[in-house]
Design a binder for these strands. Structure first.
Length: 611
DNA sequence: AAAAAAC
């Protein structure tokens, strides 16, 4: 075990002298000297404001109490198909129909227990257990829905008919009660409705779409699928933008479907395809995939989407942005997937810009829009700091920070730091710098082999290298426990990306710290960042406010994105109310171009549409 | 302009 990495930093000067003298590449900059070994105090003192106290609980704006079911009142008693109990007697689950998938029955090997225990499932719902999830942080979450006949939320898992096998897995996961997005999304999905869901990072979205899919597939256990040939016919497809995220979703889905007979397979690029083909041949109900590899398999006719009943896009706004949209359109519209209305489509993300919402509606039918989360996303659990750091000073500033962090950490054992940079080259060189200076770092980006990527992630998660330098490949969705600190070494150009990045900490109701290095290169982010921080009750440095007010705002992407981030707005409503008005132009009050007349929402001084 | 995603 390596406990003294940062102690070694103190000696890094001598270590490094030896290292660079021998074989490794020579650092281009002078060797890092930690502050306490220098004659002079660090020059950047004045830039770092004292960390703000986490502003939990109090001072929340725009929320006046539980939402309850009242919004749904319009629908009268016509809850569509909610509360069906077709398979209620699920019992032991796994029993007799393990072999139904695709008609393939290649032996009945014992299902690996993804929980790594002996299957003891003692505590019943309601019994408190240490789940690691801080539910108090979820108490005051505002919820907004729109669409026709929205099914009301549930309060407990017991209120939902997911079947005994799934209930048991929920207990094994130690989920005591559903998170807000789960409370709201699961009934909507169980009712068979299409859904566009916007919920803060770390709030349990994966389970929110997995449970209904699994329950739905269990209901359709006798569905006949074509067989013969080597084509497999999954009933559900879950797409995500990165391989590691797909892998993570797969792992989760395996837990949720343990002993249900529902088979989950993941496919993505960069890994041997033969192994994935073998997995597919053993039967697949839920296919988790990244787009490229899926298209490959579709073109080889190893997978057909003909029987898809459920389509989920995780990080849906990313999946539909410029880089991905053609592939997604191909998969959803130009292969053999059943059209809108013949399948159930669910889109999830923490952010949902209006343009993307507009695009997304092509894939949805009579859908419900759901926004869960306080104004300002999950960021109230994350203390955000911004420091003005010149480009040239970033490296030494980061090392000061990492070093100081070690000094003050109480529980340093398993406290991880995730450092985001803009480019793959930048990631390599920063990793190298840290390495040479005795910091236990590794890196992940798209130019590394898949093996290297997975190894880096494992090494980071385990604490072996508690510093991970990453590009945006790690910005979305990854659930890495114990990430205490996210550093935006380079700020992204888009405020949505910032939201996702800092969302790697402060997960499951826990608090986290996010530090950003700001300079002239990030000027376009000044305004949205200042606004975001203000709305999350963070300390906004005066200099940032000055930059924010100085910057010309053209109504460009950032401002648009910021408005959408809060999510919270169904573009269908926005459009009808604001027809012909200028959305992003002149509303200096909200700063997000959401007209105050529409409930404005984002400024504490304005009555919120969340109420 | 960069990142991601198939071989």
């Amino acid at each position: 075990m390596r406990t003294s990495w940062s102690d070694s930093v103190a000696n890094s000067a001598s270590e490094n002298a030896a290292a660079s003298g021998s074989s490794g590449p020579r650092p281009t900059r002078a060797t890092y000297i930690p502050p306490h070994l220098r004659n002079q105090p660090p020059s950047s003192d004045s830039l770092a404001p004292p960390p703000a106290a986490p502003s939990l609980g109090n001072d929340r704006v725009g929320y006046s109490g539980p939402v309850g079911g009242s919004r749904w009142g319009g629908g009268g008693g016509s809850r569509p198909d909610h509360g069906r109990s077709g398979y209620g007697s699920g019992g032991r689950g796994g029993g007799g129909w393990n072999n139904r998938s695709g008609g393939r029955d290649r032996g009945r090997e014992r299902e690996v227990n993804p929980f790594g225990d002996d299957g003891d499932v003692e505590p019943a719902f309601g019994e408190q257990e240490n789940t690691g999830i801080n539910f108090d942080a979820y108490e005051d979450i505002p919820v907004e829905t729109s669409g026709h006949n929205v099914p009301p939320p549930v309060n407990t898992f017991a209120d939902i008919d997911l079947g005994e096998a799934v209930n048991q897995n929920i207990r094994r996961c130690k989920y005591v009660k559903p998170t807000p997005v789960q409370r709201n999304a699961i009934p909507i999905l169980l009712a068979g409705r299409d859904l566009m869901a916007c919920a803060q990072t770390g709030s349990g979205k994966t389970a929110a779409f997995c449970f209904p899919i699994i329950a739905g597939i269990m209901r359709e256990q006798y569905v006949q699928r074509p067989h013969g040939g080597r084509t497999m016919y999954p009933l559900a497809l879950i797409l995500s933008p990165t391989r590691e995220l797909s892998s993570q979703i797969h792992d989760e889905a395996k837990k949720f479907s343990y002993q249900t007979g529902v088979k989950v397979v993941v496919v993505y690029g960069g890994a041997p395809i033969n192994q994935q083909l073998r997995e597919l041949e053993r039967g697949v109900d839920i296919l988790v995939a990244t787009p490229g590899r899926l298209v490959d398999l579709l073109e080889r006719a190893r997978v057909s989407l003909q029987m898809i009943r459920y389509l989920a896009l995780d990080e849906a706004d990313r999946m539909l942005d410029m880089g991905f949209e053609p592939q997604i359109r191909k998969i959803v519209e130009q292969m053999d997937m059943p059209p809108c209305g013949m399948r159930q489509t669910m889109l999830f993300s923490a952010t949902f810009p209006k343009e993307i919402q507009r695009l997304a509606s092509d894939f949805l039918s009579n859908y419900i829009f759901l926004a869960v989360g306080r104004v300002g996303s999950s960021t109230d659990l994350i203390v955000q700091r911004v420091e003005y750091v010149q480009e040239i000073d970033k490296r030494s500033h980061l090392m000061d920070l990492l070093h100081a962090q070690r000094e003050t950490e109480v529980n340093s054992k398993h406290s991880l730091t995730l450092v985001f940079v803009e480019t793959k080259k930048g990631a390599d060189s920063l990793e190298h710098l840290l390495h040479v200076n005795g910091f236990p770092a590794t890196s992940i980006h798209g130019d590394r082999t898949q093996q290297e990527r997975e190894m880096a992630l494992r090494s980071f998660k385990s604490g072996k290298t508690p510093i991970l330098v990453a590009t945006d490949v790690a910005a979305r969705g990854l659930d890495i426990p114990h990430v205490a600190h996210v550093v935006n070494f380079d700020l992204p150009n888009d405020i949505d990306d910032y939201v996702h990045r800092i969302g790697r900490t402060g997960r499951a109701g826990n608090t986290g710290l996010a530090t950003a290095f700001f300079n002239e290169n990030s000027m376009s982010l000044a305004r949205p960042l200042a606004d975001l921080m203000q709305e999350a009750n963070q300390v906004v440095p005066a200099w940032l406010t000055r930059y924010a007010s100085r910057v010309l705002h053209s109504g460009g992407k950032n401002r648009r994105s910021a408005g959408a981030r809060f999510g919270g707005r169904d573009f269908r409503r926005e459009g009808s109310i604001n027809k012909g008005t200028e959305y992003y132009g002149g509303n200096s009050n909200s700063g997000y171009g959401v007209p105050a007349g529409y409930g404005g929402g984002y400024n504490p001084a304005v009555a919120s549409a969340w109420d």
